[in-house]
Design a binder for these strands. Structure first.
Lengths: 138, 138
DNA sequence: ATAGCTGCAAATGCTTTGCAAGGCC
DNA sequence: GGCCTTGCAAAGCATTTGCAGCTAT
């Protein structure tokens, strides 16, 4: 029976995908994965890191986000031209996007269902289906 | 009974939405609306205009695309971080996005149907529902 | 020791803006 | 003529890259 030590989760998670657990990646990983489902932009995450006293450059945040995404730890969500969002929930699910505030929220996977899907074009395979429900404040 | 004169459609379309039919807007409007449903980026449209011998700057293409969008003549589609696509089909419909080539295609409105929709959060109204089926080449 | 990371600053790509000159009504 | 448009070039963002120095293993 294995004892779970504090802060061990992120280290193992990184090792498991072949990424060295450096100080920066650890700090970013904890900010991302220790707090439930999160949706962040590079800038926002960088701000949080700095605020938490972690010395890390914006370039490194971008690198980490992409490495995490490539490793399957994060998912990139496209809702805004010219800004990238990353989602710590990598399960099948969709999004609410609040156009006024720029806030992105998960829609539980089973709250949206497709009744009908088109035929996939010749020579192509579906990589993903994204549903974004755009919201305006009332 | 009204006789349809060549090139009259775009002029009227622009006037109808309160935009002066300048040489540039006319040329861009024709490129966009004379050829069925189209999906363009600013850069691509600018290239087509230049190729067609129309002297127009990229900045003006951006302005025109946004003015057309605001006027309801176009619809902006978000599929790629850092690149804006505009769709001449403003009806309710969804998209195939070929990730490898960057090509965007319409899915006829009735080929996709939602079986279930989540509750809209308090204080918000649905502005639009976007479904993007991302494709990879096989 | 060494392969992999990081930081910085410069470069890039897309888009927007400011302002003088030009064109539509 | 007056006001809206345009063009150009410069500015603005978000993101990426190159490379010297640092660090985890």
């Amino acid at each position: 029976m294995s004892t779970v030590r504090p802060y061990t989760g992120t280290i193992q998670r990184l090792r498991a995908v072949g990424l060295r657990p450096t100080r920066q990646r650890l700090a970013l990983g904890r900010l991302l994965f220790d707090g439930g489902d999160r949706h962040v932009t590079a800038e926002k995450l960088h701000g949080e890191a700095v605020e938490a006293g972690v010395r890390v450059s914006l370039a490194t945040v971008y690198n980490a986000l992409h490495q995490f995404t490539e490793a399957g730890l994060l998912r990139e969500v496209v809702v805004d031209p010219g800004k990238s969002y990353f989602d710590t929930n990598t399960n099948d699910h969709h999004h609410f996007f609040h156009e006024d505030s720029g806030v992105l929220d998960d829609i539980p996977g089973d709250a949206v269902a497709m009744a009908k899907m088109p035929e996939t074009p010749e020579g192509s395979a579906i990589s993903r289906v994204d549903v974004v429900i755009r919201l305006k404040s009332t």
